[in-house]
Design a protein around this nucleic acid. Sequence first.
DNA 1: AACGATTCTGTTTTT
DNA 2: CAGAATCGTT
Length: 723
Amino acid sequence: MDRPAFPDSILDALNPAQREAASIMDGPLMVLAGAGTGKTRTITHRIAWMIEQGVPASAILAVTFTNKAAREMRERVRHLTGRYDVRLNTFHSFCVMFLREEFPVLGRAPDFSIYDDGDALSLVKRVLDDASLDLETHKAQTVLNKIGRWKMREVPPREAQDTSDSLTKEVARIYEAYDRALVEANACDFDDLLLQALRILRDHDEVRARWNRRLTHVLVDEFQDTNTVQYALVQLLTADTGNLCVTGDQDQSIYSWRGAEPGNFDQFLEDHPEAPIVRLEQNYRSTKHILGAAASVISCNRYRIPKTLWTDIEDAEPVRVVGFVDDYDEARAIAKAIRDFEAEGIRPETIAVFYRTNALSLPVERTLLQEGIPYIVVGGLEFFGRQEVKDLLAYLRFLANPRDVVSLARILNVPPRGIGKKTREQVVTLAATQGRPIGDLLRDPDAFTDFTPRARAALTDFAEKLERFDSRRESPVGDLINEILNVTGYAEYWQKKSSKSGSLEPYQNLGQFVTLAQEFDRLQKGRLPEFLTQVALLTDHDRTERRDHAVSLMTLHTSKGLEFEAVVLIGAEHGMLPHAMSSDSLEGFEEERRLFHVGMTRAKRRLVITWAGARTRFGRRSAATPSPFLDELGDVGVEHHGGPTAEAVAIGERVEWDDDAHPLAQARKGTPVWHPDWGSGEIVGVQGRGQGLDRKAVVEFEDGRRVLVLRHSNLELREDDVF
DNA sequence: AACGATTCTGTTTTT
DNA sequence: CAGAATCGTT
Ligand SMILES: Nc1ncnc2c1ncn2[C@@H]1O[C@H](COP(=O)(O)OP(=O)(O)OP(=O)(O)O)[C@@H](O)[C@H]1O
């Protein structure tokens, strides 16, 4: 076991402000600071310091934003103190653990299933079906989103129905039915995990008091992205002790779409007026140019409290902004940039490519593959979202929780075994009318006497399989899964499929899942229930395989909290970043700006930002113009290359802006356009020949007509489907 | 009930 | 373009 070599050095590794924050052990505390100022480092050391001062490690709860961040912090604390038993959780994983212990207080069994968004969607569809509601007016996804918004704000179904709007009222009724269905299936969706835990802590003083004794100190990292329920939760967890420390940065709040409530900062100060606020101002990560450009961008946000941030890291190179003709060109330049970075001695593991949407990774991946540059895609829901993985998980969940209808419905006929939709629904209805867990019903040999002989045979066969799995419930999870794969013929099923039509991936994913389970068996204690608890909250972020000498590809959201020597931020275009779906309100637009700023501030030494004038999106080529954020970078230490106006220079290589690819090149009468000053308009006439940019356009705006030379007009197309 | 062919539909970010 | 939903044939 490693003991710390120099216990006294725990606080020595911090600057004075950080040290102040780390050494305040008791009472409320807020650490408010910009990117790269060592917030995470500070609370890690604070935890280590508390342990050194005699606080039991297991009495400390630190909440991080991702499992990965939790793991890393645990590793650092272990390194500093030799202790690894600090409770390091995400809000969700803490609540799962909490509910596994305390759910009986609400009369619920602790073997509940956890539904991800896909499962929740299935359940909503099921409810809509049962209520025979019009699927046209109620799209399942929309309904689920609305329910989610209620849940995040703690609005119960009854209250939601209290409205005069009949459509909303109907959705609220679905919400009620959905909640009931969750209880019947003994399942929790992600929001439920938080809500149920909150309910228990709020309504049961004894439980709250016990947990306050158990957890004497609570710390929350990335506080800017907590929602109201999460804040209420930590408030209750520290109601008696008052030892709540939060750290965050308003300028890095990028999850409002998931209910994140930056107002929690104010709420905290209102609830704890005596709380010291420690501000950290020295950035230890980035060079002056990078930090300056990022500061210049973020200062454009109206809703923001300005703060000081400085660095003494000198620059090697300026921040580069480069425009390309299209995404293909952009991708090739990215490959070249990576090679150049490597030639400079930057290790590939410390190079990252960021993008706004997952779809943007495709052309980059293809090019890197071609060029033989190893890469990994970090995060996303690729693996756990796969059909074959979800099927396997559904088997496991149904075995652990016999009431779990959604999981059962998923696998009852997987692989195909002659149990169609009709039989399936009959079984589900039968269980519902008898008020019996569907798993018990299925295992009952006399349950299906009224069914057709064919259906009965198939169901009996299925029941036999279930019983074989039951006898393995206490086995290592890897063995159980192998048993399932063999007995059901599911492995064979995919093997056949893949040999027929190409892709080996599904079959390999099954293998990966088995490996994952075996790893669990080897490294952790517990069987099926414990495995499910863990796996339900895993994301690809947590299982991204290590690959030597690989550069990292990820979304801007995933990049939060990380740092890289060199960053290439791609797709900086109008409609992409800021994304069209969130730029219609000022709040949305400013969050996009924060997102851009988060991406920029991940870079330590090198930052390249790219955009493409045309992108193959959706199988179609569509035009794009540079992101307005590019104009906000300032001009100190920032170089612009390429694009319609400036000389076209790629990262080291010349790329001409091709007039034909310019979105306005084919402008003609009737083309809808937009201008930054005059708003929406339509081209009512074009003067000049051909398709060039030197033509003049007569544009009808809301407040009148104007004649503009296309090349210098600053006009943008209102629709991106131009060609 | 199963499977293949066709049509449809939709793309923001994820615990 | 790709994944889901629907359709039509066996
Ligand atoms: N006092 C210090 N001395 C040396 N390096 C430091 C110090 N404080 C922080 N650092 C380094 O600065 C970098 C950023 O630290 P950290 O990740 O803790 O910052 P953060 O405030 O959590 O960042 P962000 O909010 O951008 O995710 C890390 O590489 C860290 O090791």
